[in-house]
Nucleic acid binder design. Structure first.
Lengths: 98, 98
DNA sequence: ACAATAACTTCACTTGTTGTAGTTGCTTCA
DNA sequence: TGAAGCAACTACAACAAGTGAAGTTATTGT
């Protein structure tokens, strides 16, 4: 198995990671939005995953000035290349919804 | 996020799972072949994952009579529907091999 | 002043994963 | 005949990851 595939697989193979990427697939998402969208994820785990995904260059974090100021996460260009994968996942999931 | 997507994501979000599915993408694989193909996975973890994937209907286990008799694992029809996802993963990985 | 929202952090606990070794039942080699 | 090897695991203590519940800091709407 190619090394780069193992690395990419390793990224997805942590709890909640795929769901987090899924939740960001159509635009910017804030911390508390992730908590709701993903479901039962503990905040500490979310923090850990967001940092990992940021370090991996898949998500980027942006402070948005305003009242109140907000923190947004969105897919980077690199992260967007995972969209195909998300579509494949949805196709798989949909087919076996029963 | 749809419930069935969360379920499918949950399947992949365990260490080694994606690699195991990857390793089965072109035919039957035996226990020790997985150990080699996947790399550093401990046998106990491999056993656990194979059982989970079997229960999830993604892999099937078959005893093949012969000398010596062997145990083979292969993707079920349902598991084969993950091939698109593997292709997407490879595309992602290849693009960022650097 | 008080409750609410946003984005987290803390920590004791439980669950998951690892490394190393050992097991059982063959079979081939010398 | 005995030693070594393969195949497919299991056992278990040590360590790492993930959890749940509560708390934190800063701001804002009523």
């Amino acid at each position: 198995m190619p090394e780069e595939v193992r690395r990419a697989a390793g990224l997805l193979e942590r709890r909640w990671t795929v769901s987090i990427i899924w939740a960001s697939h159509d635009g910017a998402v804030r911390f508390n939005e992730f908590l709701q969208a993903v479901g039962a994820i503990p905040p500490a785990t979310l923090t850990a995953r967001l940092t990992e995904l940021e370090n991996a260059g898949i998500l980027e974090r942006a402070m948005v000035d305003g009242r109140p100021p907000r923190t947004e996460y969105r897919l980077t260009e690199r992260g967007s290349e995972l969209r195909e994968l998300l579509l494949a996942l949805r196709a798989f999931a949909a087919f076996h919804a029963t």
